[in-house]
Design a protein around this nucleic acid. Sequence first.
RNA 1: GCCGAAGUGGCGGAACAGGCAGACGCGCGCGACUCAAACUCGCGUUCCCUUGGGAUUGUGGGUUCGACUCCCACCUUCGGCACCA
Length: 821
Amino acid sequence: MVKEYNPGDIESSWQNKWDADGLYQADADDGKKKFYALTMLPYPSGDLHIGHWYAMAPSDARARFKRMQGYNVMFPMGFDAFGLPAENAAIQRGVHPMKWTYHNIDRMRTQLRSMGTMIDWRREAVSADPEYYHWTQWFFTQLYKNDLAYRKQSPVDWCPQCNTTLAREQVHGDDRHCERCGTQVIKKDLEQWFFKTTNYADELLDFSQIDWPDRVKTLQTNWVGRSEGADVNFSTEDGEKLTVFTTRPDTLWGATFMVLAPEHPLVEKITNQEQKKAVVAYQKKAEQKTEIQRATVEKEKSGVFTGGYAINPVNKNRIPIWIADYVMMGYGYGAIMAVPAHDERDFEFARQYGLEIIPVIQPEGQKFDGGTMPESYLGPGLMINSAQFDGTEVSEGKGRKNPGIGKVIDWLEKEKIGQEAISYKLRDWLISRQRYWGTPIPMIFCEGCGWNPVPDQDLPVLLPEEVEWLPTGESPLKLHPTWKDAICPNCGEKATRETDTMDTFMCSSWYHLRYLSPKYKEGPFDQNEYNYWMPVDIYTGGIEHATMHLVYTRFFHKALRDIGITEAGEPMLQLRNQGMVLGEDGEKMSKSRGNVVSPDDLVAAYGADTVRAYLMFFARWDLGGPWNSQGITGTERWLKRTWAMYAQSSGPGSASDELIRDVQREVHTALDRIGSDYERFEFNTIISTLMELLNVLIDAQGRGASGSKVWPEIMETYLLMMAPAVPHIAEELWTNLLGKPYSIHNQSWPKADPDMMKKDQITLIVQVNGKLRDRIVVPVDINKKDAEKIALASEGAKPYLEGKKVRKVIVVPGRLVNIVI
RNA sequence: GCCGAAGUGGCGGAACAGGCAGACGCGCGCGACUCAAACUCGCGUUCCCUUGGGAUUGUGGGUUCGACUCCCACCUUCGGCACCA
């Protein structure tokens, strides 16, 4: 036993012992309640970041708390190992992506161990291992066989110089140039694989089975973006069908023009000779913008008249067709009917280009004039200028829930002009990536038979290691001399492999299932493990994944359920998000800003326990905030003082029963509070409660409490309370100093005793007109009348009551007496 | 522009159900220990005038005996989404 607290002496040796003893190995056991605690797996970028610690250390503490509560807790870890940075490293530094990735994983594994987490490393899964992506591929074929995967043309950002697809982050600047060669990026249509996420749009809006934060539910709801309305069949003057979706079929009579997305297929047909040049120029300009840019640029609308006209089916009006980039090809039909009188954007567009504005909804008592309206009108009212519908009331409701809109939809359906429809912002999930470092898509194309999935017995389709990185930037899979040669599983003729790989969100959609049985060979997971462990009880991770990853994994589970592979439709019952740790300057941490905080340095200087505790303490976990390197001395001192207290804990002394009773009350109150704080993810107050209690204990120790019979029990309880947050020091003091049976991490969380928490006397505050004037100490069970009497007579209150009439006295039992004069 | 979150001492934050604002910690000040410094320990630390009081939780209103907490309007910061028909 050393005299001073020196984390370097104890932390790694305990880590090694826990590991050797398999202390945190969690095995399915029907006799025990299970708890699956999952935290988002990191991408092996090279170094563990303080942000990783911020995500994982409090999650680990909470998992440990659950374990002490008697749950059989599984806390696994893995690596999301495919992805672009590995390929960049390959191109820039000539390292093979596999080598780079696995080297980083080794390093991060070591770093993760230095945190002293209760990770069960037997369950580790790495998405780039063939035994992992074997099943990623199998899932793909399952989705394909169940009609949830299909191919269609879709544009990608393409660098004509490098001859390669670019990810969004590889396109730089407002002029959108290639990060490698500076060439301006173009859009190119490629045949790509998609998953039908839209099949599950409505189900994804149902959160009734899960306890997720409201802000995430709101983000996902907006992401799915359901709107109710109608499809309406317009036609061009030449009789071409032109369908649009509208949420406001009640305003059809006010449609004075139409707008198509610049890339709409009909544009070429309807554009006349006169407008051709302008239209083509506009299309070119739009092509070079991202959707975000098209949306952002300026409030001012831009567009070009095509020269073509459409016929409004409700009144046979002839209306001009324009193109404008505020209409997106990816939503609805890529075409809108424009009703400037009742839509903000259409209004601005109409004013700018001098197009007609016809009001068709008018609130009673007002009179709109299309020529002078200052802005569009979006509220309720009566229909006007709308033939037989004039006078129909339109309220604020959406779709058929709005009777006015419902009447119009009924009529459209009867006249076969249109029908009720629901439109979603959600798009199908584009899976294909024109990359090397990813899971190969297990599909084979045969001239005669078309596309066929690779048969189960031929999986996995291995990623070839011997590849060349040619400066063209094209995927090495495409350039590989033999890899793409295959035999058609259907007819046995020569065929060609798909050379695209999968989006890495596919790997992370099911990793929690692979953790169940990472070595399992008969399927993606062992059914027995699934039955015991699933679903995930708590999922923790960054809010930035609120839409993409967390939508995909929900979709994935619903699809697997319908295919019959899994049972539950929701993979994660509870979700909680941590905030972001910013640099000390308040900016996002980044290497280029030079404000990155390295956890390794902190561990070397202070020890893992201090860093863990500080990460729990320094900010509200869900909010995060700027790092403060000074504050960490606070948690360091806390652990040093704790150590010192235990080092001199035994010894003679005598203390009053009252003091002991007070200490016990504080201990049980803290137990109660810390327990509920863990449940609520309020980690900062867990540490401050422990600090407060330490102050009480040290004070009591100085007053002779350590001679008391109950002191040893108090000392043990305090260590148990510390154990989840600071596992090393708690173990050291428990096992080596107190000589209690190893390990503290196999002990139960002590129960807070309500009797121990009770007080005999309480302090009531005395207010006069709501202002604090005195405090009175009274028995805890005092009745209202007595409390009132004592308060009225109290020294502090008296001077304010003299010569005044007491109008009312409010007594809140256990809290206060307020005298109103 | 829309959606969401948040504004409390010099700083991070606490106040769980409308009831003592500022717990806990950092920093700072004073003192003890020391030849000295560091460490450690003790005391103090929202602001303003000083027997004592007054003000104070982004701003302005409101509800209430009583508001950091509830309601209305506004301001600021951060995050997300982006002309969604």
